[in-house]
Design a protein around this nucleic acid. Structure first.
Length: 290
DNA sequence: ACGGATTCCTGATGGC
DNA sequence: TGCCATCAGGAATCCG
């Protein structure tokens, strides 16, 4: 499931393929993929140029810009052109099975829900078998009013340890529930929550309020380390995730917790156990994680 | 304030 | 082999 490292990998791979290209057409194969509506999406995206590729939490962001206006006697360009510098945004949430790929003509991606045909013969496809994901189009400035975006917590890779501690210490919720809560920290999902808790030797069921500053510092460091390593490995491919070029990631080969129930702990060899925490399967070592 | 259940959706998996 | 139940999970929402 695409979490921060997977979305970051897709963004990095996508950028050189799509930057500066114009959205010439949108093939709508599943209207429910496009928000707020296919019509609104088309109106905001068509003839816009992709001026930036970014990420916020698990959201993939395509920053749009109006192409430089031609000298055209039909236009009434008395503007000072301030409006053309502000940009709309396409925000893509892949949820569980979403894939975003850039490909050349002749290549057929797996069952896309939508395809953006870009200038230069490049296509950008959005596929998503389970159809939980979506592509949202926003007019300039509107994304800041979108509750999901507006209420995202800070980015874990640039979050100071002191700020991380202060966001968690007040809560009596179990630590894993907080790590998964996008309002607390943005971008962590089930895989990296389990991996970070294992590295920090913290049990997912521990109330945040029971963690010492030292433990919170260790967790902060573990989160940054595991996310950084996962990005370096192009993310984790359990089943559906692929990079923007259709390749699998490699970090799944380094899992120490996620999906390892019944297998020996990499540290103490005791079999890992799993339990439902915050509604998610959580795998941990009863001996190493307290 | 917090946890649990439910909803959305489809493919993989395991039991019989 | 074929069928059915179960599971996987991000996030919103409702309920206790």
């Amino acid at each position: 499931m695409p979490e921060l490292p997977e979305v970051e990998t897709i963004a990095r791979g996508l950028a050189p393929e799509v930057l500066g290209r114009t959205i010439l057409a949108v093939q709508v194969l599943d209207p429910s993929a496009l928000k707020p509506s296919p019509e609104a999406f088309l109106a905001l995206a068509l003839n816009q140029t992709i001026a930036g590729v970014g990420r916020r939490g698990k959201l993939l962001l395509l920053h749009l810009a109006s192409p430089a206006p031609h000298a055209n006697h039909n236009d009434h360009n008395n503007d000072h052109n301030a409006s053309t510098s502000s940009s709309g945004i396409l925000a893509i949430h892949l949820r569980m099975t979403g894939r975003v790929m850039a490909y050349a003509p002749g290549i057929t991606p797996d069952k896309p829900r939508a395809i953006l045909n870009l200038s230069g013969g490049v296509a950008l496809s959005f596929a998503d078998v389970r159809r939980f994901g979506s592509m949202h189009a926003f007019a300039p400035g509107e994304i800041d009013a979108w509750p999901f975006y507006r209420d995202l917590g800070p980015e874990p890779l640039t979050l100071a340890a002191s700020d991380f501690r202060s966001r968690l210490t007040g809560s009596r919720s179990r630590i894993k529930a907080l790590l998964l809560d996008q309002h607390v920290i943005a971008g962590i999902g089930n895989i990296y929550a389990d991996e970070a808790l294992f590295r920090a030797s913290i049990r997912p069921t521990t109330p945040a309020s029971a963690l010492s500053p030292r433990q919170l510092n260790a967790l902060h460091a573990a989160i940054q380390a595991v996310l950084t390593q996962a990005i370096a490995e192009n993310g984790s491919s359990i089943r559906d995730y692929r990079t923007a070029h259709g390749d699998a990631g490699a970090f799944q080969n380094h899992f120490q917790a996620y999906g390892r129930a019944g297998k020996p702990c990499t540290r103490c060899q005791v079999p890992m156990v799993s339990a439902k925490v915050a509604g998610r399967t959580s795998t941990y070592c009863e001996r190493c994680q307290k």
